[in-house]
């Protein structure tokens, strides 16, 4: 009887050994790998704001960005221009190319100021699933050149000495983002921008002059509502005394809301914003339309990637 138990016991031993989880050896063999968090945002831009994403290695992103005219005006609705659809505030065509998975360069051309811009974007930190790095961070810089005729460049001023450098402006941003869940991402964008030439204008309320150097703080979020659709919001506050309570030209903080639709290699954005310009060099300094006064514009954005 005793032997029988022994027999039974050893049989049980063998069978349990046979079903042993060999994979548990893997866990002891090496520590869990840190996976990078992917798709914090879907494209390189949210709406107005840059995202932490860059175009991946050897990929070309062709983008068409379009902003129509004001939906309403201070005078009331404007059915005659189909609520802004007959007008174009700005459009931009751009190409962005990924040198590595984390380094991207691009060129673009906008209608406003005829700005031709060159951009560079470097993602130097990736959020990891184990929170070893809780955020992603990207450095963004651009330089824009306006080739417009001198009379436009200096319009409304008595400035007569032309300098080529007056055509240039620059933006530098650190973009810090966190994907909090599969469907919610948030980022902040401390921004410094510099314009080589500003018109000599003064805010009569506080005697503040327009500055060459300014700081701004942006925020953006993406919230997925279905597998391939998301809601986007972004906002910038520009720190400028000249732009605070200016009775001659009122300035507003650019705010944008939109939806994002992803279909294979394309990403479509449909959005509303009070900014008329598409690149930071313009909209941070020159947003003079207000949401509350009908100054929001319908806009869209199409991104198509090619693998080269």
């Amino acid at each position: 009887m005793k032997n029988c138990f022994l027999l039974l016991f050893s049989c049980v031993c063998i069978s349990s050994y046979g079903q042993q989880d060999l994979l548990s050896m893997l866990d002891s063999a090496k520590p869990a790998t840190k996976e990078k968090v992917f798709a914090t945002f879907k494209t390189t831009k949210v709406i107005n704001a840059q995202s932490t994403e860059t175009v991946k290695k050897h990929t070309l992103d062709f983008r068409i960005t379009h902003r129509f005219g004001d939906i309403g005006t201070e005078g009331g609705g404007s059915a005659h221009d189909l609520y802004g659809l007959d007008n174009i505030s700005d459009y931009r065509i751009s190409f962005d190319y990924g040198i590595t998975d984390n380094l991207m360069i691009g060129v673009g051309r906008s209608k406003l100021n005829e700005n031709i811009d060159g951009t560079i974007k470097w993602r130097f930190l990736d959020q990891t699933t184990d929170n070893h790095s809780p955020v992603s961070a990207t450095l963004y810089g651009n330089a824009a050149l306006t080739p417009e005729v001198q009379s436009s460049l200096y319009s409304g001023t008595t400035d007569s000495t032309y300098k080529f450098s007056d055509r240039l402006s620059y933006v530098t941003q650190i973009i810090i983002a966190r994907k909090f869940s599969r469907s919610f991402s948030l980022e902040i964008l401390p921004t410094y921008f510099h314009r080589n030439y500003v018109k000599a204008l003064t805010n009569p309320n506080n005697n503040a002059e327009d500055q060459n150097d300014m700081l701004a703080l942006g925020g953006a979020l993406r919230m997925k509502v279905s597998k391939r659709m998301a809601i986007l919001v972004d906002y910038f506050h520009v720190f400028s005394d000249f732009r605070t309570n200016n009775p001659i030209t009122p300035y507003y903080d650019p705010l944008a809301v939109g939806i994002e639709i992803e279909t294979g290699g394309h990403v479509f954005h449909l959005n509303f914003t009070n900014a008329s310009g598409i690149i930071e060099n313009y909209f941070l300094a020159n947003t003079t339309d207000s949401w509350s006064k009908g100054g929001m514009k319908f806009g869209f954005n199409i991104s198509r990637v090619f693998n080269l």
Partner: peptide
Amino acid sequence: GDIQVRISIQGFVFPKPL
């Protein structure tokens, strides 16, 4: 004769990143 493997889904590398 037991054989087991665990495959990380994110370990699959595609020619197209998208």
